[in-house]
Design a protein around this nucleic acid. Structure first.
Lengths: 224, 224
DNA sequence: TGTACATCAGTGAACGCGCGTTCACTGATGTAC
DNA sequence: TGTACATCAGTGAACGCGCGTTCACTGATGTAC
């Protein structure tokens, strides 16, 4: 055990990179990727609880038993997919944040969202679907990640001058509204017929209006 | 075939009610109910796509083949559950509407929502879960019903004086925001630990704030 | 560099299980006279 | 009302199927000398 660990460390040090990269390791990683990608692709059409190990290995082009060289069970594969999908979401929010003082924050944010949803359809579909799924373990994992995501957004909101004196709780409440609107926009894009740009345009327009309503309603809502 | 129909009409006329009510019919209805109730109960823990015909009949206390005396297949049972669940939702909105000029529309609406979610946990769970499920037919049915629901709400909104000159599209957009907030509130209630009134109280407080933000943000949002 | 042995990703046969659906049936309820 | 026949909700055996998981295996890659 210790030997294995030391060897791994040595490899990293010698190569200067984390990419282990012996032919055998490379092949193993390729198969692992094939399993994950196959699963994600199948999950565009069905939900995780009805996705079978055999379906995944069949699509990946390996024998069912090979699966166990990579994951203990299907749930472990599911958790890996959640991890990777939220990495994409964080990359998205980072990308939105890095736009310094754009002319129109809201329009630009929606554009970025649309871009990411289009580029990572399967991941968004998966998260949106399993968020309410019957698989307790996955649902819990997604719930935790979404709460984290919401907190990050709340922190961003706190930077806006006219939100500076809000309580954390209220900022979270607002972040919650925004996340809900963004999630349902993503769903709208995913469900829009792919050959209808008008349907997509409408989803985008609605999203912008909703965000505007939430953001610009803020300075006045306490007066109600 | 014609005879059967005539006989049915006669029965209704004679009895004066639609409740057919021969002992055999009554027993059949009881079994049908048992199948629907068993399915709904099982659906609190798992999603529809992984719910089996045999599980349902086992719980209902009949042999698997008896199922076919009541439904062609599981999807048909699912569609029936959707129908019944939306009946509950409409009853809820009707109940909210019938409150004439309550002191605080928003607080009262949230109270009514909470009440209905508590009384019909399984139905709300089912709709919330299958809304994004992998079963295309059910998802489509729920989508249609929700769109209808949103339109009804938009019509209600049009009655408020300061929304009178809004376009239908904008009213729908706002109804969409409200429905999203209500749905996520219902989810919050369902997921709150049953032994923690504080957790529930927080969900309720957040819901009220969100609705207030949406409603009172309205008169000012166009200025943004 | 060459050889002998170790590792281990992927194979293929086999298992027991729960599934949806078929079919011929039973016996209580309903109908006609 | 009583009898003879029809209906039909629910039964129980049987089927073929895809599933997850086990096990002993193979042969290419890796390691030690």
């Amino acid at each position: 055990m210790i030997c294995v660990t030391l060897h791994f460390v040595n490899t990293r040090t010698l190569d200067g990179m984390a990419t282990a990269a012996s032919p055998r390791q490379e092949q193993k990683q390729r198969t692992r990727r094939a399993l994950l990608d196959s699963a994600l692709e199948l999950l565009e059409q069905e939900s995780f609880s009805s996705l079978s190990l055999r379906e995944v290995t069949r699509k990946a082009g390996v024998v069912p038993t090979a699966f166990y060289r990579h994951f203990d069970n299907m749930n472990e594969l599911g958790l890996t997919l959640i991890d990777e999908s939220f990495r994409t979401l964080r990359e998205m929010i980072r990308s939105a944040r890095s736009e310094r003082a754009p002319e129109d924050v809201i329009r630009r944010s929606v554009e970025i969202l649309i871009h990411y949803v289009r580029e990572h359809r399967a991941q968004f579909r998966f998260i949106g679907r399993e968020r309410h799924s019957g698989v307790t373990e996955l649902r819990a994992a997604i719930g935790t990640e979404l709460r984290l995501f919401r907190s990050e957004l709340a922190t961003d909101l706190a930077r806006f001058p006219y939100l500076r004196d809000w309580t954390t709780e209220d900022l979270n409440m607002m972040a919650d509204l925004l996340v809900n609107a963004l999630v349902s926009t993503a769903e709208g894009i995913l469900d829009a017929p792919t050959d209808s740009p008008e349907a997509e345009e409408e989803v985008i327009a609605t999203a912008e209006k909703q965000l505007r309503l939430i953001v610009f309603g803020v300075p006045h809502w306490k007066s109600g």
